[in-house]
């Protein structure tokens, strides 16, 4: 079961595509909001939302929001989601956020993540404020009616609860070992 709204972010230390180790504490430090997005390389839902997530991260960085993507898929079953492939993807798309490898899948289990992409947005005190999909239309960016993540970021950065705190995550299932 996924974290409940208001829950604390479970701690982690994971390997980033640049070879460094990134911790939850380092991401939270001074952030007005922190979006943890379970993601991967191969999933068409991730690919469909990828440019939008990159743009959201760029738009909200000046306001104090931070993002990190975590890939927990089993690379044996899905070689496209291996660490070297993650490094290639992050470089090709010039990810403006860390892209972390949850090799043991313990972090995905701690968050209760089930899909890619699946967004967990925490406020400045580290409490879960929004969980779910980035917006309401994976297929067509021009057809989006509700920008759930942007709306939640606006609210959290203003010190308010998001207008919608939870939506069903839509995407590929995480590939467990």
């Amino acid at each position: 079961m996924a974290l409940r709204i208001g829950a604390d972010a479970p701690a982690f230390e994971l390997k980033n595509v640049d070879g460094t180790t990134v911790s939850l504490d380092s991401l939270k430090n001074g952030a007005g909001a922190l979006a943890i997005v379970f993601s991967c390389n191969h999933c068409p839902y991730v690919l469909a939302w990828e440019d939008r997530l990159i743009q959201i991260a760029r738009d909200y960085a000046p306001r104090g929001a931070r993002f990190a993507l975590i890939n927990a898929n089993d690379p044996v079953k899905y070689p496209a989601d291996s660490f070297p492939e993650m490094q290639s993807r992050a470089k090709m798309k010039a990810y403006p956020f860390p892209y972390l490898f949850d090799e043991t899948q313990e972090v995905a289990r701690a968050y209760g993540a089930e899909r890619t992409p699946e967004v967990f947005l925490f406020d400045s005190s580290g409490k879960l404020a929004y969980h779910g999909a980035p917006d309401d239309n994976y297929d067509d960016p021009s057809g989006v009616r509700r920008h759930y993540l942007r709306e939640a970021l606006d609210a959290v950065l203003a010190g308010s609860p998001p207008p919608v705190a939870e939506t069903p995550p839509v995407g590929c299932t995480i590939k467990w070992k």
Partner: peptide, 11 residues
């Protein structure tokens, strides 16, 4: 993964 006529990815 499908590609739309304008080059986007879609499921």
């Amino acid at each position: 993964v499908y590609r739309t006529p304008d080059g986007r990815f879609s499921p």
